[in-house]
Design a protein around this nucleic acid. Structure first.
Length: 587
RNA sequence: GACUCCGUAGCUCAGCUGGAUAGAGCACCCGCCUUCUAAGCGGGCGGUCGCAGGUUCGAGUCCUGCCGGGGUCGCCA
């Protein structure tokens, strides 16, 4: 049970005994740590409702609570704040429990759910760039977080492999190499096993094609035509398209692996292609989908909408499908294959209207209820001009290049520290990789998911202060001091007894882990966990600076501090694992 | 134009259902390595919370209007 919940129950019972609703007993960590550890503001709202004097109400509650020895001090302050401070014994006992817990006091969901998490969403033939960073990092973190909280979660990359870009690639390649058998409509195979394009070709062809289609309507029409033919099953195009996928996917896998991001499913939009025709047929038969201006659509507008929601287009007038079509069919596929309780999408916030359309269509069609489809949108990475980030050349920054830069910086810093000397070149590279990645990930995750933020290389490259490497450093120091204690035969960890302020603060921080997990899971906001990770590392660093551990002379205090240090280190490592940024052994 | 997100310290950002003196990191200044990793710790400097009204005992937080910025708005994803 969470400490604040335990306290809320106690205070709530006191409110109930005085004839108030127990919900007034909500306790939270104090805003004024100089005055108390916890506070309850319920006397103010209870008194307001009952038209009583808030201080008088607070005094009655406080009087009832003072009987409980869990509290060291209960005071009334200001207009009626109830300030609570726990006894060191109560704190120590709860900390012993956290230290003995395999999950270090982590919270778990009362009703575990089966959840499909849709994130990543890279497009075939496009190298990953900084725009893909957020979905991957936030999605991976949410996946691990939900799993930690006891949910069954299936991560699906949802590859973009079925839209217009495929037609653009086909037509672009046709211009370069018209003689390839894939383009001869009179041939229906077999086609060569060897791909006609390399990864480099794809990365060159796509931007070319995209630019050409933007500039020239004829080219755009050609691409649309090719897309429709591909989707209709033209054998040469399908064969070519399979090569595109194979070549591109190998590269995408490598990049995500470097990022420490792994998917349970590598499904793509194209995988639901066979479901589309029957789905649309069914929706038409039931009157959910209708013909409109040559297209087949689902009207999703509702009375009372503040804005106009255009219909979800299932078939374009040229017969091609759009990503809304595959998204809807994908819901059917997920529903029928694993019967999830919920489907979550970690996708850019600029697609909010799109998901609203898809979710409404799903609801209207009775495919999957809208309230169990959630678009966990994230904000845009902007440049210093406040607009979506572009490199100086106006292009996008490749993820690979960004990771390289950050790793290089970490390697240089590692060399300075001197701790790299004990490592071989390979291990040093691994440590630099971990540290660089942590800087990158923490900079992203510690921002609230829904905030836009300024893409700032200096921030990603920063290894001091509120950063990933700071968390690593704390973890490394715990490991180091515990190792030293072992070597010095300092004895084993023992019951926690608190005397120094830094010990008490660390204990209180450790006890907040459960609440942080709960908040992060329920609000789907990883930054709550980051906040906790940072205060934990900070509390430990202060404790470490103020208190001797391995060479503390009193055996009882030494044993207690070993427990504190070990619990802090293990809790921090659990969090670092959830955040997807495991610490190195040394740095 | 409609809708939507946002505007808090020099910079980048927190601030949970309205509550006590609005927090953190960076930057800047000062101090701390002859005992466990100084990627650290301690101290200092720094804010009319975009503007104007309103509701409230109490507003960064809720309501209205205005100013400024980002984003979206049927056959791209």
């Amino acid at each position: 049970m969470l400490l604040t919940d335990e306290l809320s129950d106690l205070v709530g019972a006191a409110f109930a005994a005085e004839g108030f609703d127990p919900s007034f007993g909500a306790v939270r960590v104090s805003d004024r740590p100089d005055l108390a550890q916890f506070q309850c503001n319920g006397a103010l709202s209870a008194a307001k409702e009952a038209r009583l004097n808030p201080r008088a109400v607070g005094e009655k509650i406080a009087a009832r609570l003072r009987a409980n020895r869990i509290f060291q001090e209960i005071t009334l302050a200001g207009p009626g704040f109830i300030n609570l401070t726990l006894s060191d014994e109560a704190l120590g006992a709860r900390l012993d429990a956290v230290a003995a817990d395999r999950r270090l006091g982590g919270w778990s969901a009362a009703r575990p759910e089966r959840i499909v998490l849709d994130y990543g969403g890279p497009n075939v033939a496009k190298p990953l760039h900084v725009g893909h960073l957020r979905s991957a990092i936030i999605g991976e973190c949410l996946k691990r977080l939900f799993r930690f909280a006891g949910h069954e979660i299936i991560g699906d990359i949802h590859l973009g492999d079925w839209g217009l870009p495929m037609g653009q690639l086909i037509t672009e390649l046709k211009r370069e190499q018209p003689g390839l058998p894939y383009f001869d409509a009179s041939v229906s195979g077999p086609y060569p096993d060897q791909s006609p394009v390399s990864l480099e070709d794809l990365e060159r062809l796509y931007p070319q094609a995209s630019a050409a289609c933007k500039a020239d309507e004829t080219r755009a029409a050609e691409a649309r035509q090719a897309t429709a033919e591909l989707q209709a099953g033209r054998p040469g195009y399908r064969a070519l398209w399979r090569h595109f996928i194979a070549v591109s996917r190998a590269a995408i896998e490598r990049e995500y692996e470097d990022l420490g991001v792994t998917f349970d499913w590598w499904k793509g939009e194209a995988d639901v292609d066979p479901l589309i025709a029957p789905m649309v047929e069914d929706l038409r038969a039931r009157g959910v989908a209708v013909d409109d201006a040559g297209a087949v659509v689902v009207h999703v507008a509702r009375d009372g909408d503040k804005k106009e929601y255009p219909p979800l287009i299932l078939y374009k007038s040229d017969g091609g499908v759009m990503y809304g079509t595959t998204d809807l069919a994908t819901i059917i596929d997920r529903r029928d294959s694993v019967h999830p309780d919920r489907i979550l999408y970690v996708v850019d916030g600029r697609q909010r209207d799109h998901f609203e359309q898809v979710f409404r269509a799903s609801d209207i069609a009775g495919i999957f209820p809208k309230d169990r489809l959630e678009h966990l949108w994230f904000g845009t990475m902007n440049g210093k001009d406040g607009k979506p980030f572009k490199t100086r050349a106006g292009g996008v920054l490749k993820l690979r290049d960004l990771i390289d830069m950050v790793e290089e910086r970490a390697a240089a810093r590692l060399k300075e520290s001197g701790f790299a000397e004990g490592y071989g070149a390979e291990d040093a590279a691994d440590v630099a990789h971990r540290i660089g990645l942590a800087a990158l990930k923490f900079a992203d995750l510690s921002n609230p998911r829904t905030s836009d933020y300024v893409f700032d290389l200096d921030r990603f490259m920063a290894f001091e202060g509120k950063t990933g490497p700071y968390l690593h450093y704390a973890s490394v120091r715990v490991r180091s001091v515990l190792k030293k204690a072992e070597g010095a035969q300092a004895g084993s960890p023992g019951p926690v007894t608190l005397s120094a302020k830094e010990e008490r603060d660390l204990a209180l921080t450790l006890l907040q882990f459960g609440a942080a997990v709960k908040d992060a899971v329920e609000k789907r906001l990883p930054h709550y966990l980051c906040e906790h990770a940072f205060s934990l590392a900070q509390s430990f660093s202060k404790f470490y600076a103020a208190c001797r551990i391995s060479d503390e002379s009193s055996p009882a205090i030494r044993a207690s501090r070993l427990t504190l240090a070990s619990a802090a280190g293990r809790q921090l490592d659990v969090i670092l694992d959830i955040l997807g940024m495991p610490a190195p052994d040394k740095m």
